[in-house]
Design a binder for these strands. Structure first.
Lengths: 116, 116
DNA sequence: TGAATAGTTGAATACCTATTCATATATTAA
DNA sequence: TTAATATATGAATAGGTATTCAACTATTCA
């Protein structure tokens, strides 16, 4: 354990206080992190990307990603809880699709960083 | 374990193949997930947000986020490895700042989803 | 030189989470 | 009703990771 306030922070106090003042609410930042956490998994990224091309059922995704249907289903539940995908039922088949256009826009922005 | 190719995927074969064809390279998708993983932590989000306001030294960040300087240092190393922050040394003090403008743009995009 | 400050780092711990496995539900068709 | 298919889900496991703790380095200054 150590003390929090260094000498240099005292010197920088004005800047630090100004930054603190403009920081978004704790909830907002936590929410941001939670959203990015959902994007931060290869399986979910692939699912989201696939759904950005076309709506698909669970076993389509399982086949496409070469994974068990169970694993896909678990991830889809997570994605739905985060309001990133929605679904509709047609007989025994459940089709999933993107909830809105945000996903594509976030992808686009992030790709510019990755592809450099 | 279970078989991968369901009957309904046979029916949807055309769509599934088309989606597969347009999927980005494995490396690209993994890279995307890795980037989002870095954003997917409250501490790192706060650090990045703070640095989007002003460059700061390690102990400034520790004071601002009320965390040990060691914890902050560990996270800064991660952020630097991901090319999201850069640093400069001035005597004993190391100042960190955002590596480029991508961070702000990605934040902005994601916020529109969180704040709805 | 020695003391103090700023920062880094490796190991340990405690928590989280992605996948698997087994099972359950829902729908359709025979 | 029974059998088959599509999906969902709870528990267990294995792998990952954020923070802490205890050193350690680098720099300044007295």
């Amino acid at each position: 354990m150590e003390k929090i306030k260094c000498d240099c922070t005292v010197i920088h106090e004005e800047i630090v206080n100004k930054v603190k003042e403009f920081m978004p609410a704790e909830d907002t930042l936590t929410g941001l992190a939670e959203l990015f956490k959902v994007f931060g998994d290869t399986t979910r990224i692939k699912i989201l990307w696939a759904l950005s091309e076309s709506e698909m059922c669970v076993c389509d995704l399982a086949f496409l990603l070469n994974m068990t249907q169970s694993a896909i289903s678990h991830q889809l539940r997570l994605l739905k809880q985060s309001r990133l995908v929605k679904n509709r039922k047609e007989g025994k088949v459940v089709f999933y699709s993107l909830a809105d256009e945000h996903v594509k826009l976030i992808f686009k922005q992030a790709l510019t960083h990755v592809l450099e």
